[in-house]
């Protein structure tokens, strides 16, 4: 299912929470909403799920607005996780599957199949309150996929322990291979870098950067040279090819024009200051994110 989010905005009590956000999610791709806590990722997902209504803009699923049939084809893993504590794992899975219009018998079969696949079959008749938090997370994961949805929305799926981290990575990869449309929101840049195909960076409710991960990495291909020295590092910004310098105590990060040869810049650095350490660094998503945020902050100042 192809999802188009076009210029959506959302205000609460006159305060703009989401401003003009647009992105797309396509089948067989992982779209990642990246941003710090409070960036507005969950609000966007809630608008996608129809829990909130955008004040402006629209969201289209295969060019259609959200309706109950489309909602049936969406799986959702919420950021805040909770389950009925007194019911068994099996009862909960069947209940939620039936709410997605899966007949009772099929829901039962599907629940058993998934519990087996996720090593939960031994706990199928155990009340949820007796299960660990990690197991409960797996149950929620199963709830998001038990009805074989076309679209799966994961809100902060990586906020888990190591065992489940491996499990969720595998699951997301597999779902992509199955051609599902996957939208995930996270503040963990490393996970986004590892899994995402499309990145949408949100900051303070605004879209500050978006595009395919590979294109973004290409766009921010400039070299970064990290210099550590006892001397004053400010003269380094006068070196030809250095676009800007970010200094933290005695360590400076020099952003070098991608047309400039690093070797020439290195020589100039050595001539300018008495370096104790110098290294050339290729920028990753983390640098791209920081750069984008910094540019946004600068523009807003």
């Amino acid at each position: 299912m192809h999802i188009k989010i076009e210029h959506i905005s959302k205000s609460f009590d006159g305060k703009l929470h989401i401003a003009d956000v647009s992105f797309e999610a396509r089948p067989g791709f992982i779209s990642c909403l990246l941003g710090q806590k409070g960036a507005g990722k969950s609000t966007v997902l809630q608008m996608l799920l129809g829990i909130l209504k955008p004040d402006e803009g629209y969201i289209a699923f295969d060019d259609k607005p959200l309706n109950s049939k489309i909602l049936d084809k969406i799986g959702y893993l919420p950021e805040e996780r909770g389950l009925y504590q007194e019911f068994t794992l099996n009862e909960i899975l069947v209940y939620f599957a039936r709410l997605k219009h899966i007949p009772r018998k099929k829901a039962q079969v599907e629940a058993v199949r998934l519990m087996d696949r996720f090593n939960l079959i031994d706990q199928m008749e155990t009340p949820v309150c007796e299960l660990s938090e990690e197991i409960q997370f797996r149950v929620l994961l199963l709830l998001s996929i038990i009805h074989n949805p076309d679209v799966i929305i994961f809100d902060e799926p990586f906020r888990v322990r190591d065992d489940n981290l491996v499990l969720i990575r595998k699951l997301i990869t597999r779902l992509r291979e199955e051609g599902k449309t996957i939208i995930l929101s996270t503040e963990q840049i490393s996970e986004a870098e590892l899994l995402a195909d499309e990145i949408t960076i949100l900051h303070r409710g605004e879209l500050i950067l978006k595009g395919q991960k590979s294109a973004l990495l290409e766009r921010f291909k400039e070299n970064i040279i990290i210099v550590e020295a006892e001397d004053n590092l400010q003269p380094l910004k006068n070196i030809p090819g250095v676009k800007r310098i970010v200094q933290e105590k005695q360590v400076a990060r020099l952003y070098v024009d991608k047309q400039m040869l690093p070797q020439k810049v290195l020589e100039a650095i050595i001539r300018t200051v008495n370096v104790s350490r110098v290294e050339v660094h290729k920028p990753g998503l983390n640098e791209i994110y920081l750069e984008a945020v910094e540019q946004f902050e600068r523009a807003n100042v």
């Binding site: 829990i51 909770g82 939620f96």
Partner: peptide, 14 residues
């Protein structure tokens, strides 16, 4: 509501 099930339920039923 407190245990965040209502939100999940709203994605399953009208």
């Amino acid at each position: 509501k407190v245990h965040h099930i209502l939100q999940l339920l709203l994605t399953h039923a009208n």
